[in-house]
Design a protein around this nucleic acid. Structure first.
Lengths: 215, 215
DNA sequence: ATGATCAATCTTGTATACAATTTGATTGAC
DNA sequence: GTCAATCAAATTGTATACAAGATTGATCAT
């Protein structure tokens, strides 16, 4: 399935917003963007609509669309919501996971451990993502999985930051072990609770970081 | 804030899709819709994109957009996800609800009871919606609240059906009482569990209905 | 008769032209 | 000097024209 141009533009714009190329509140000028991308305003407008519907920008009628970077409060809310979604996935994964999912979960966790031992933090980050997505899949609920992946992607740029905390990586690893154990033994409540705490702590670390920067 | 034309078109199209005006898989013809609405293809295309991004239609490049009514499986998945979102809201609402929210929650519940006593089922339905939205608000997490409201709206047409089950209304009412009690006493776990069960049973009732129709 | 190939037609995607609304400044009155 | 009104420039929203790709049907060969 070929990807159309407007979609690629939307993708690129998302990257630019994520990478902080555009300041919060900045207006995304249709003319300028059209020039930059060497296309007409039409595909630009379509791309902007994608940003708006994904919540990365807001549109004011007859005024334009403005980038809407989440502030500290909204970010905490998003992490909290992510924690609940993950808890839900974990709850179902503990009961419904197939053998395939279970083995992939264990193997992703081990790959993460290896990456950590090799001090390959980028790789650990990737394996971490796989680990969590495997749990989403284990929930055997395609709709829930989709929501979880969507929010996970949205939080991706911010999740990377908190991993830099000293000792966080080892802690994260041991939390993963507890999660795997809960899911393997089919303990839905424990899986939900450990996952919720595991994600919530990321939000808290992030909050600490923000607070420390403000001083 | 004035509502632009394209937005109204999107709204109308949503209604038409919800009301089953368009069959599942049917192509939404830009030319025909443009004629019907007496506008050009441009605003129609924008409206269609809204439908696509909200998941009510899927777009195949160079082929068009097709309405995508959720099947029984996807509906069950959506109800299950809704149950988890509500459980999360309840968990936080039990701990964070302000006095305002608490009194509104009690009053919405009582209004529902009165509507039920008066056999005004449409009113009960509305109060029921208010009741749940009050819980979302009580969670004091605007992002989570937004997700919950969005999915609630998406499921609205299907939730109405299961209320027709004999005895379901009284059962629903007593479940509400238990939920209010849990939130008032600040019992987060019980609030989460009762809410999850309360919503999950709706999905099960719906499933029963589907199954009975297939026989 | 059947299958493939090619052209005609239809449909989406993009560009451009036009309309309508907002914004900002300039000018005039008080 | 300040405030209001009006007009011009800029910007979004819509219409239309054009381009590119897909579908369909017919024709031709086997």
């Amino acid at each position: 399935m070929e990807i159309r141009r407007a979609d690629k533009i939307a993708e690129t714009l998302e990257q630019l917003v994520f990478s902080g190329e555009f300041a919060d509140g900045e207006r995304l000028d249709e003319h300028k963007l059209a020039e930059q991308f060497r296309v007409s305003r039409t595909p630009i407008r379509e791309a902007l609509q994608v940003l708006v519907s994904s919540g990365m920008a807001i549109q004011i009628p007859r005024r334009g669309v403005f980038v809407s970077q989440p502030g500290p409060v909204e970010l905490m809310e998003m992490f909290e919501t992510m924690a609940e979604l993950e808890a839900a996935c974990g709850r179902y994964a503990a009961v419904r996971s197939s053998e395939d999912v279970l083995s992939e979960l264990v193997s992703a966790n081990e790959r993460g451990r290896a990456a950590l031992a090799a001090q390959n933090y980028d790789l650990y980050y990737d394996e971490n993502e796989t680990f969590h997505q495997t749990i989403y899949r284990g929930a055997a609920n395609a709709f829930l999985e989709k929501q979880a992946v969507r929010l996970q992607n949205r939080l991706k740029p911010y999740r990377k930051i908190q991993l830099r905390f000293r000792g966080r990586l080892d802690q994260s690893m041991s939390e993963h072990d507890a999660i795997v154990d809960a899911i393997q033994t089919g303990d839905a409540e424990r899986a939900a609770n450990t996952l919720r705490a595991h994600v919530a702590i990321q939000g808290e670390k992030f909050h600490q970081l923000i607070a420390s920067l403000k001083r």
